[in-house]
């Protein structure tokens, strides 16, 4: 299979208005991905499926990933004039990246038996604008998986014929897999609470005794 840069070049030649970037993957798996803009995603996907050399007809996995607002600190070396001399100084810049939800598609080819080609789409923000074009008209396997992303992350897919909740019940509100999901305020008795669960537990019942009769054990005596 050809390299990702070649694929990118050919896609840009075929769908001229599309804006594609390569997202590097730092891990040893070397699975880099193409980020596609939302307007032309469907055209790009159709081209990827129909191109005779690639023929990516098998969409294996559709994943939703939630990214909150992040600040990236970068340290760069800059030449600055300090006390009349030019010196190299390290400066830290902060870059604020607003949050978004992205959908990652892993594409393989059953005819040519190669892959994966990974494409990503990002929503403009995590609020009312969290919409993405649905790639279900191109790959039928996205049907249930896009419904799952809608159910668990709250991303609406335009063009999906049957977008409703799939794993949670229909009257459920809020989106469980988001990073800022707050659990409902119901609580059951838990005999071995840990860390932050202990705080919640204290509100609902009296804190458990810290000893269980262990203070009654004398060294050398047989256990009861």
């Amino acid at each position: 299979m050809e390299a990702l840069e070649q694929i990118k070049a050919r896609v840009e030649a075929a769908v001229p208005a599309a804006k594609i970037e390569i997202v590097q993957n730092a891990s040893p798996s070397q699975q880099h991905s193409l980020m596609i803009d939302n307007e032309h995603a469907r055209d790009v996907a159709k081209w990827l499926r129909d191109d005779p050399a690639l023929r990516l007809d098998f969409c294996s996995d559709v994943t939703g990933v939630d990214w909150l607002d992040r600040t990236l600190k970068k340290t760069i070396k800059v030449k600055k004039v300090v006390d009349g001399e030019e010196k190299e100084v390290t400066e830290t810049t902060e870059e604020k990246i607003p949050g978004y939800i992205e959908a990652v598609y892993h594409l393989y080819s059953m005819t040519h038996k190669h892959g994966p080609v990974i494409i990503r789409m990002r929503t403009p923000d995590r609020g009312e604008n969290s919409r993405l074009p649905s790639l279900m008209p191109i790959w039928r396997s996205a049907e249930f998986q896009e419904r799952e992303i809608f159910d668990l992350y709250g991303v609406k897919f335009d063009g999906h014929p049957d977008l409703r909740r799939i794993l949670m019940w229909d009257e459920f509100e809020d989106y469980p897999m988001r990073k800022d999901y707050r659990e409902p305020d119901d609580y059951e008795y838990e005999p071995t609470p840990h860390d932050d669960v202990v705080e919640k537990a204290k509100r609902y019942y009296a804190s458990r005794p810290q000893s269980d009769g262990a203070e009654g054990i004398v060294e050398g005596a047989k256990p009861a």
Partner: peptide
């Protein structure tokens, strides 16, 4: 290390895959 990976095998029922995104911490990010 930071990054992501998708690994898959032929389970008896079909293709079972795991997609992991790591942010360098002890727990996976996704």
């Amino acid at each position: 290390p930071v990054g992501e990976a998708y690994g898959r095998i032929e389970a008896p029922k079909g293709e079972l895959g795991f997609y992991l995104i790591s942010d360098g911490g002890p727990n996976p990010y996704r």
